[in-house]
Computed example of a mutant assay.
Amino acid sequence: MTGLPKAVMLFAAGFGTRMGALTKDRPKPLIPVAGRALIDHTLTLAREIAPDRIVANTHYKPDQMQRHLQPLGVAISSEQPEILETGGGLKAALPLLGSGPVFAMNTDAIWIGPNPLRLLRDAWRPDEMDALLMCVPVASAFGYDGVGDFTCDQGGRIHRGAGLVYGGAQILKTDGLASIPQKAFSLNLFWDAMMEKGRLRTLSYPGRWCDVGHPAGLELAEDLLKDANV
């Protein structure tokens, strides 16, 4: 299929405040989960789809992130002096990512099941959608106690509501980012514009997913990985 993404953006710039003391001396993506840095679990998924480029943004304790990621072949988009949030961070990284749609992925979750990026790639229809989000049914979301972020219709068109949690993996077209004047902004702003046009779609993840953005999620994630023999 034409119009497939060739680059992966990893969001790794946050302060990790929900982790409390665990992020006092290191950035959240470097916290170990089952003997590996949290971001390395995400990197494994990214490498499995063989992208041309993998880019990560950094802000909090950037020297540690650079020392870890550069030997692994990950390009760094440094956000200094201010953090740019997901939308601003993606916009700032575009010179490294290149033109065309990209995969974008948070680095504070563990996926047990099929590679979410591969599922997104197989379902991507650029003529019909501007972004495709991988969402998780609330019942399959571990370490999460909310009601969800979205709901969807039979055609996969997404709306704000309950039932589906955004899992942190997506494909999206980036050309519209140039029209957003803010330097720091959330991708929610970008999604809302797509939603109004009926161009924001979702997939429901068939496996299990764990939020590792808080301390309790660490033990949950390690238990899930152990049960899955990963």
Rank of each mutant, 00 (worst) to 15 (best):
K197H: 00
R201S: 03
S78G: 06
S179I: 10
M105E: 00
A184C: 07
L189T: 08
A184W: 04
E128L: 14
R118A: 14
L220K: 09
A46V: 12
V138M: 08
I112M: 11
A13P: 09
I49S: 02
M134F: 10
G148T: 13
F150I: 12
R47Q: 13
R121P: 00
P51Q: 12
D122T: 14
L84F: 15
Y60T: 07
Y205D: 04
L38D: 02
G148V: 12
A37T: 07
P116F: 07
A34V: 14
G207K: 11
I158H: 00
R118L: 13
T58Y: 01
Q80K: 08
L189A: 04
D223C: 13
M1T: 05
R18E: 02
L117A: 07
I54W: 02
A109Q: 10
P71C: 06
A141Q: 05
F15S: 03
D149R: 14
S140E: 07
N115A: 13
A123W: 10
H41W: 15
L84S: 07
I76V: 08
A7R: 01
P101D: 15
L30I: 10
G98W: 10
A131C: 13
V165Y: 03
C152F: 07
P101R: 13
K6W: 00
R160Y: 06
G143I: 10
K6H: 00
